[in-house]
Write a protein that binds this DNA or RNA. Structure first.
Length: 804
DNA sequence: AGCACGCCGACT
DNA sequence: GTCGGCGTGCTC
C-alpha cells in the first residue's frame, strides 16, 4: 500500500509555506496520524527538518519527487484536526507562515532543535581520518567550526569522503517516580519473614510493609518517608525477588504542595445570576454567542466565571480561561485550584518549559479539563469546549507582537464557532471594539454594576499639578497628596502609589499651562526625537523644531516630561523620613518570584507604601490599603497613539479599584497637568458609558477603530534609503487596492526611527472593506519572497496595538 | 533556512 | 587554466 503524508516543514519562508508530499514507509504506516511531528529530509542536501503531518492521502501529484519520512517524533498527535484547521485560518488572517502558527500553538519543549555532525565514509584514507576525527566516530559541526576545518571538509564532502548527519530533537524531559509492587502473597511474605535472621530488622519491616500493600503499587518516596525504608532496603527486596520496581512517568506539578482550601460556590447576586444564566443557556444549547460581561471592579466576575465553568464541566465539557500574564498571581491560581482542584491546568511564564509541557500533557490526557493561563493558552489542546472566558478583555497583551501576530480574542471566537460554545469577554472597562459590537448586538451585553459585598467605590479626587507648579512645587508630590500620605501613616493604613511609565519622556509639555505640542494635521501629540533633535508626527510625517518657549503661554518651562520610580522613591524619602517603601518596577521584579515576594511583604504589612509602575494596577487586593495615588496620570495621555485616552481611562479606573477593598473606605488621588481632559474627568466619575460615547465620537471623526480596520506595514533596513524605497514601493503597490472608504497614512519613519542600527519606515492603512486589501497584501507577500535576503525586513500587522 | 548550480575575478 | 566569490532558485 502507498501512503503519502502532506507535511508542513520547519522552514519559515514564503516559498516553503505549503504542504510537501512524503511517502510513508511500510513500518510507519500503521502508526502515522495527522497532527504528528515527524522528521523528513528536505532540500538538495536532504538535511533533516521537523515537520507537521497535516494530511494523509493515497497518492501524490508528483510521485517522482517523493522522499520518505525518516522518523516519527510522537506517539500521539500533538495537533488535532481542529488545531490544524485553526493554524490555516490564523496563517491567512495574520499574514504569517503556517509553520510559525503551528509552533506557537505548542509548548516550547516540543520545538525542534537541530544539530549537525560530520561522519567519515569508509573510503576516507587513514591519515585524514586520524587528523580530523582523532579516532572518534564523528565530530560535531560546532567543533569543526572551532577547529577551522570547514574548507577542507567541504572538499572532502564533494568527493563523498565525509557525510553530514543531521539530528533533530526537542526539549522534552520527563520526571519519573519509582513505584514498588509486591510479588509475594501474604503467606509467602510471612514465610520469608520467619526465615530471616533476627538481626534483619529492616528486611522484616519491608516484608511487613509488602503485606500491607497487597495488590497496590506504592511509591518508593512513600516507603522512605512513612515506613523508614531506604532505597537500599528496597533494592535488596528486589534482588530477593520479593518486589518489583517500576519507573512511572510523573507530571511535574508546580502547585502540588500548595495548601488548597477547597472553596465552594458563593451565593450570586441578582446581577451575577442573570449573567450566569445567560451564559449557561448558551453552553447547554451549544450556541457560539459572544458575551461582553461588563462588571465594575469588585462586582464578582470571577465567581460568575467559576460557576459557569462548573456548569460546563457538569455537561461533560471543558473550559479555557485567559487572564493577563500579570494578573496570573498565586491568589488567582489558588482561587481556581481551590474550586476545581487538579482538574485545572495552569500555564504562565513563571513555569519552566518542562512544567509547561507537563501541564499541557495533562490536558491532552484529559486528566485536566480546565485551563487557566495567559495568551497562548487559547491553543490549549482540549476537546469538546464548553466555554471560553477572556478576563480583562481590553488588555493589549492579548495581541501577540511577534509573528504570528494573532489576537487571542479572535482565536477564541474561531474556536467558539468550531465548538459551538459561548465566549465570555469580561472587563470593567471594555475595549471600544468590544463595547461597540455589543451595541450592534454582535455581542450580548451583560452588566454588573454593584459590588456584592456592598462596598462603595472609592472616591476619586483630581489634583491639578499646574496649580502646584504655580505655587512653586515642582516635586512629584502635591501638598494634598503628602498630607494624605502622612495621615494614613499615622493611622497605620497602607498606601499604593503608581507612577505611570507609559510614554515616558517621549513628548514635551509646558509645566505652566499643560500645553502639549500637537501635530497640525493629525490632532495627536508629536513625538520628541532626540536622534534628529526635532518633533515629529509619525502619522503624517510632519516635522518641526523643538520649541524653546511654550507656543501658548510663552513660558520657558516647556520640557520633556517623565520620572523614574527610583527618583520618586528618593524624593519621597526626603519628605517622609520614616516610611517603609516597597518599590516595584522592572528592575526590582526582574528575578523570578521577586514580584510575589515584594507583594507578600507589603501584604504582611512590612511596608507602608507600595510604589510601582502599571504592574501594580491589576488585581491586587489588600484590605488595609485606603489611599491610592496616581503621580502622573497624563504621561499615557500624550502618546502619539489613538488609543491613549482609552488606555489612560482604563488604567485610572483599574488603579482606583485598588483602594478600599476591606471594610475601611478608600480614597484615590490622581495628579495631572490636564485635569480637564475627558479621560481623566470621566475616570474620576467612574463613568464608563460617557467615556465610551465621547471616545467613539473621536474615533469616528478620525476614522479610527472600531469604525475602521487598520493594517500596519513596516520595513526596516540598515541603510535608511533602502528601507524608504521599499516602503514607498509597497505603498505604490497597495494604492490600487484602496477606495473611497480607505486611506493610507505615510510612508513615514516609525516613532523610533532607528533601533539596533536599523531604520524603520511604515505605512498605516485604515479601511472598511476587508477582502479587497487582504488579497492584495497576500499578493504582496508572494512578490516580496526574497526581500529578506537583501537585509530587508517587512512586517505586516493586522489590527496593530499601536501605530508606533 | 541551506544547499547547489552557475558565471566572473585573482591565484598556484 | 582553476579555486572560490556570492547572486539565483529550489526544496515533495
Amino acid at each position: 500500500m502507498n501512503l503519502v503524508a502532506q507535511v508542513i516543514v520547519d522552514v519559515p519562508t514564503m516559498q516553503t509555506n505549503r504542504p510537501y508530499d512524503y511517502s510513508v514507509p511500510g513500518q510507519l504506516q500503521p502508526v502515522i496520524q495527522e497532527g504528528m511531528r515527524i522528521v523528513v529530509p528536505f532540500g538538495r542536501g536532504s538535511r533533516s527538518v521537523q515537520g507537521f503531518v497535516v494530511g494523509l492521502k493515497a497518492k501524490s501529484e508528483h510521485p517522482e519527487k517523493l522522499k520518505s519520512i525518516l522518523e516519527i517524533m510522537d506517539l500521539e498527535p500533538v495537533l488535532n484536526k481542529e488545531l490544524i484547521e485553526l493554524g490555516q485560518a490564523m496563517s491567512n488572517e495574520t499574514y504569517s507562515f503556517l509553520i510559525t502558527c503551528y509552533q506557537s500553538m505548542l509548548p516550547a519543549a516540543l520545538r525542534a532543535s537541530y544539530e549537525k555532525f560530520i561522519v567519515p565514509s569508509p573510503e576516507l584514507n587513514k591519515e585524514l581520518a586520524v587528523s580530523i576525527f582523532e579516532g572518534r566516530g564523528e565530530i560535531s559541526w560546532k567543533e569543526a567550526e572551532e577547529r577551522e576545518l570547514f574548507s577542507e571538509l567541504k572538499k572532502l564532502k564533494n568527493k563523498g569522503l565525509v557525510k553530514v548527519r543531521y539530528e533533530v530533537s526537542d526539549h522534552r524531559t520527563y520526571q519519573t517516580i519509582r513505584m514498588v509492587k509486591s510479588l509475594l502473597s501474604y503467606e509467602e511474605a510471612q514465610k520469608e519473614s520467619e526465615n530471616l535472621r533476627t538481626t534483619a530488622k529492616k528486611q522484616k519491616l519491608l516484608l511487613l510493609t509488602l503485606q500491607k500493600m497487597k495488590e497496590e503499587s506504592w511509591s518508593s518516596k512513600q516507603l522512605n518517608q512513612e515506613y523508614g525504608l531506604n532505597n537500599r532496603d528496597i533494592k535488596v527486596g528486589e534482588e530477593k525477588g520479593w518486589l518489583e520496581i517500576e519507573e512511572v512517568r510523573k507530571y511535574r506539578n508546580p502547585y502540588e504542595d500548595m495548601d488548597l482550601e477547597t472553596t465552594t460556590a458563593l451565593d450570586l447576586s441578582e446581577e451575577q445570576q442573570s449573567a450566569y444564566r445567560a451564559i449557561v443557556s448558551s453552553i447547554v444549547k451549544n450556541e457560539d454567542q459572544t458575551y461582553l460581561l461588563k462588571g465594575i471592579t469588585g462586582s464578582g466576575k470571577t465567581e460568575v466565571y467559576m460557576q459557569v465553568i462548573d456548569e460546563a464541566l457538569k455537561e461533560g465539557k471543558t473550559a479555557v480561561v485567559l487572564v493577563p500574564e500579570i494578573s496570573l498571581t498565586p491568589q488567582m491560581v489558588t482561587q481556581f485550584k481551590g474550586r476545581f482542584g487538579q482538574r485545572v491546568a495552569v500555564m504562565h511564564s513563571g513555569l519552566s518549559d518542562g512544567e509547561r509541557y507537563d501541564e499541557w500533557q495533562r490536558l491532552v490526557s484529559k486528566e485536566a479539563d480546565v485551563v487557566v493561563g495567559a495568551r497562548s493558552s487559547i491553543f490549549a489542546p482540549v476537546e469538546n469546549l464548553g466555554v471560553i472566558i477572556i478576563d480583562e478583555e481590553h488588555e493589549g497583551s492579548y495581541k501577540q507582537n511577534e509573528n504570528p501576530r494573532y489576537h487571542a480574542r479572535n482565536v477564541a471566537k474561531w474556536r467558539g464557532n468550531y465548538h459551538q460554545c459561548p465566549v465570555v469577554l469580561g472587563s470593567a472597562t471594555p475595549s471600544l471594539e468590544s463595547r461597540a459590537r455589543a451595541s450592534k448586538d454582535v455581542y450580548q451585553l451583560l452588566e454588573m454594576n454593584q459590588r456584592p459585598t456592598g462596598q462603595d467605590l472609592p472616591g476619586v479626587e483630581v489634583v491639578n499639578l499646574r496649580d502646584e507648579a504655580r505655587q512653586g512645587n515642582y516635586s512629584s508630590f502635591s501638598n494634598i497628596l503628602l498630607e494624605k500620605i502622612r495621615d494614613r501613616l499615622e493611622k497605620k493604613e497602607q498606601i499604593v502609589l503608581m507612577l505611570n511609565r507609559r510614554g515616558y519622556s517621549s513628548f514635551i509639555m509646558c509645566r505652566d499651562c499643560g500645553f502639549v505640542l500637537q501635530c497640525p494635521n493629525c490632532d495627536i501629540a508629536q513625538t520628541l526625537h532626540m536622534d534628529s533633535k526635532s518633533m515629529k508626527c509619525h502619522y503624517c510625517g510632519h516635522e518641526e523644531n523643538i520649541p524653546n518657549h511654550c507656543p501658548q503661554c510663552r513660558s520657558s518651562s516647556i520640557r520633556y516630561y517623565g520620572t523614574g520610580t527610583q527618583k520618586v522613591e528618593e524624593e519621597l524619602k526626603t519628605v517622609i523620613e520614616d516610611a517603609k517603601i516597597v518599590r516595584m518596577d522592572r528592575d526590582t521584579t526582574r528575578r523570578k518570584g521577586a514580584h510575589e515576594k515584594l507583594l507578600d511583604r507589603f501584604g504582611r504589612g512590612e511596608a507602608d507604601i507600595l510604589l510601582g509602575t502599571q504592574m501594580i494596577a491589576k488585581g491586587l487586593d489588600f484590605p488595609n490599603v485606603t489611599l491610592v495615588g496616581v503621580l502622573n496620570a497624563d504621561t499615557s495621555l500624550n502618546l502619539p497613539d489613538f488609543r491613549s485616552s482609552e488606555k489612560t481611562f482604563q488604567l485610572l479606573t483599574q488603579v482606583s479599584g485598588r483602594a478600599g477593598r476591606g471594610d475601611k473606605s478608600g480614597e484615590v488621588l490622581v495628579q495631572t497637568y490636564n485635569p480637564e481632559h475627558y479621560a481623566i474627568q470621566l475616570a474620576q466619575r467612574q463613568d464608563y458609558d460617557s467615556f465610551y460615547k465621547y471616545e467613539m465620537q473621536f474615533r469616528h471623526k478620525g476614522n479610527y477603530p472600531p469604525y475602521y480596520f487598520t493594517l500596519r506595514i513596516s520595513v526596516s533596513h540598515e541603510v535608511e534609503r533602502e528601507a524608504y524605497l521599499k516602503v514607498y514601493e509597497i505603498s505604490q503597490f497597495l494604492k490600487p487596492a484602496l477606495n473611497s472608504t480607505s486611506t493610507m497614512l505615510g510612508p513615514t519613519p516609525s516613532a523610533i526611527a532607528r533601533t539596533q542600527n536599523k531604520y524603520h519606515y511604515q505605512i498605516i492603512i485604515k479601511y472598511k472593506n476587508k477582502s479587497q486589501l487582504h488579497d492584495k497584501v497576500h499578493e504582496l507577500m508572494q512578490k516580496n519572497q526574497k526581500e529578506s535576503l537583501k537585509g530587508l525586513q517587512i512586517t505586516i500587522d493586522s489590527e496593530p496595538n499601536t501605530f508606533m
